[in-house]
Amino acid sequence: MTESLKVRVDRRDGLAVVNTEGYINNQGGEEIAQAANSLIEEGYRTLLLNLAGSKIVNSIGISILIEVLERMLELQGRLAFCNLTPTIQKTFHIMGLTQYAQVYPDEATALSELLSAAAPPAGT
């Protein structure tokens, strides 16, 4: 596994997908938060975090993801996850993230559900 997490963003009509690869720890969580904040600044209010490339998350990473989720909720936006390993899914469930963020098995399912509900980003 590489030293730090890699983030790749796919902008679509109405939502953005943040793909991660690597360990969601302090550094990795900050990378994700930074990407999310940029997308929020661009006007996106629906974000999908595709964690297919991440097998591991620690408590710092989770606390940063919770902050991202809180920010999205403050803005009345949506944060969703897909492609979680069973371990990460269970962790998110215990930590209460899944109460406020949707979890989908894969990106295709997530996109079809989210796109039907998502509004296009403000100003575009």
Partner: peptide
């Protein structure tokens, strides 16, 4: 609240 929940994650991890 976070710490209490994270203790749950730790217990589950040992079990898993």
């Amino acid at each position: 609240d976070f710490d209490a929940k994270y203790r749950g994650v730790e217990r589950e991890a040992i079990y898993d």
